[in-house]
């Protein structure tokens, strides 16, 4: 279970998170929605320790993770996570399979090269890519394929928690649908806890068990996806309908 308690983070004068409180139960899929620049990515990066919050607590299974751990403890912590980055963030100097098997080729999870490659090919197949993609380089792939490889890399070491940062941004609607479905299937089949951030409502409906609406650095509404459409929060309603009229100013 992941819990954020009153998390604040500012970059200079720009107060990005102003008291975010949110909890995600084990094995559920939480989708955080909100406009661009509302701090969704920052919230995820705070949980991973890539960004240190100014104040507040982040608890993973009841243990505060904001105190920076080093060495083996930090490794063990990070080994529980997989993350799909917005642009894929694949390493361009490495081939596709080496990207997917990155964690399996070094560090505490290191295993023989052939075995790592086998796992990589298996994960690639899981996300719908043929084995011959394995030896290509990321620059040779289309946007949709890069997302798939990123997804394969995120699940390669069987993490218990997976983060998806705008998984459908930059994809055509059909590819977006395919990726959404894939994410849903994988999360269910692995029994993983998932947090997805997106502003794509089709992703929300495909992926979410629970939804949280982040605006102005705080969570405006949170609840099961089924109750989202009846939610009484005007911010949430404006976001769902994509209306230009409402409490959210269009110029940010």
């Amino acid at each position: 279970m992941i819990e954020l308690r009153d998390v604040h983070k500012a970059f200079g004068a720009n107060k990005v998170l102003q008291g975010v409180t949110l909890s995600v139960d084990k094995g559920t899929s939480m989708v955080i929605i909100g406009g661009s620049g509302t701090g969704k990515s920052v919230a995820l990066k705070c949980i991973l320790g890539l960004v240190r919050p100014d104040s507040g607590q982040i608890l993973l299974d009841g243990e505060d993770v904001t105190k920076s751990a080093r060495g083996a403890k930090r490794d063990a912590f990070l080994a529980r996570f997989g993350m799909l980055f917005q642009g894929g963030a694949l390493f361009d100097s490495l081939s596709v399979w080496q990207n997917v098997a990155f964690r399996l080729l070094r560090g505490s999870l290191k295993r023989p090269k052939e075995e790592a490659r086998e796992i990589a090919v298996e994960k690639l197949r899981r996300v719908g890519l043929k084995p011959d993609v394995a030896d290509l380089f990321p620059a040779e792939l289309s946007g949709g394929m890069q997302k798939r490889v990123g997804l394969a890399r995120a699940i390669a070491a069987e993490p218990e928690i997976i983060f998806f940062d705008e998984p459908t941004t930059g994809l055509d609607p059909i590819m977006a649908g395919v990726i959404n479905e894939l994410i849903r299937e994988i999360v269910v089949e692995m029994g993983a806890t998932a947090i997805t951030i997106t502003h794509d409502m089709s992703s929300v409906r495909a992926i979410a068990d629970d939804v949280a609406m982040l605006h102005g650095g705080v969570i405006h509404w949170t609840g099961p996806v089924g109750e989202m459409d009846d939610g009484d929060d005007p911010y949430l309603q404006q976001f769902i309908t994509g209306s230009a009229e409402g409490p959210i100013e269009a110029v940010r």
Binding site: G87, F102, L109
Partner: peptide, 16 residues
């Protein structure tokens, strides 16, 4: 470029 395209963050999340 790695920093701008989040590859540095990706390295960290991959325990490297």
């Amino acid at each position: 470029t790695m920093k701008v395209t989040e590859q540095i963050d990706a390295l960290t999340t991959l325990s490297t």
